[in-house]
């Protein structure tokens, strides 16, 4: 199935699907996640790696994922499995390859070189397959800026918190322990003009805790979050729906700008406050988000 990655798109939710579970793979699209991430890495036991690779290869070739973004998380190249994964998934058609445990820009470059080689080998136009880098260590966090800027194929950088907190010699708690990493990754992503994606929230039954974390990453500025259970998608998406009040204000801003432009003036004001460029940019983004959220995809 022909797929080509898009840099800019809605990525509120990226749903992990174990690459060795046929039922979950075939159902993956029904839950409304923006991106589906078929996993060949941590959710697949070492003895299942070959079977999962074959299954994901065939799923990519045969299943209709609709307008969803299809991501495959490969094993890291150092394990020797990563290249086998790429060989299987690229000819089958994949939007984005998620590189795990990215510690440096060199990791991205190494992976990109393999992707490009495989694209050439199969006559696929170079640059068809996108990438995202998951940062899961202190070294990776400190290198976030160079990682995010390491390739034009990168659609975003993501935080992998479980490995990261272990590296820090701490555990996950209220989010304080992740503040530095989240801020680094977010700023690196924004500086490179790509998406910033947050880590999973693993206590599936704690909806309150999940929503608190979602509120936090929304405040920080993240584009979205990985989810491990379909039940998390709906509350996650709900938190991205702009409030009626904010939306009204955004439309009013756009209207004021239109009027000012019609008058030949570059300066507009709303309720006595000057509307400058950042305000307009935010309003435009909010309206775009609201429209994207409204879209209903037929399953």
């Amino acid at each position: 199935m022909e797929r080509r990655f898009t840099k800019d798109r809605l990525r509120r939710s990226m749903m992990f699907v174990p690459g060795n579970n046929p039922g979950m793979i075939s159902d993956a699209r029904i839950y409304g996640a923006d991106s589906i991430m078929l996993d060949l890495e941590d959710s697949v036991a070492y003895t299942e790696k070959d079977a999962a690779r074959l299954l994901v290869h065939n799923a990519l070739k045969t299943l209709d994922f609709g307008r969803k973004e299809v991501v495959v998380r490969i094993n890291d190249l150092a394990s020797g499995l990563g290249v086998l994964d790429l060989e299987a998934i690229i000819p089958a058609g994949v939007h984005v390859v998620r590189l795990p445990k990215t510690d440096s820009a060199q990791d991205v470059a190494d992976c990109e070189a393999e992707i490009a080689r495989i694209e050439r080998k199969h006559g696929i136009p170079e640059g068809t397959v996108g990438m995202m880098a998951a940062i899961e260590s202190a070294r990776g966090v400190l290198n976030a800026q160079s990682i995010a800027a390491a390739s034009d194929r990168l659609i975003g950088v993501a935080l992998g918190a479980e490995d990261y907190v272990t590296d820090l010699k701490t555990t996950r708690s209220d989010g304080t322990e992740l503040l530095f990493a989240r801020s680094m990754i977010l700023n690196a992503a924004r500086a490179a003009g790509i998406a910033a994606l947050d880590t999973v929230y693993s206590d599936v039954n704690n909806e309150e805790g999940f929503l608190a974390e979602v509120a936090l990453i929304r405040k920080l500025g993240f584009d979205g979050k990985s989810v491990i259970n379909p039940r998390q998608i709906e509350p996650l998406h709900r938190s991205f729906v702009p409030s009626e009040k904010d939306l009204k204000k955004a439309y009013a801003v756009m209207e004021a700008i239109r009027e000012a432009n019609a008058r030949g003036s570059g300066v507009a004001s709303l309720n006595g406050k000057m509307i400058d460029k950042p305000v307009v940019t935010r309003a435009r983004r909010l309206i775009a988000l609201a429209e994207a959220v409204e879209e209903v995809e037929e399953v």
């Binding site: 839950y31 039954n205 259970n229 379909p230 039940r231």
Partner: peptide, 8 residues
């Protein structure tokens, strides 16, 4: 139920 498909 906690089955995501049934919930959907």
């Amino acid at each position: 139920t906690k089955n995501p498909k049934e919930l959907l």
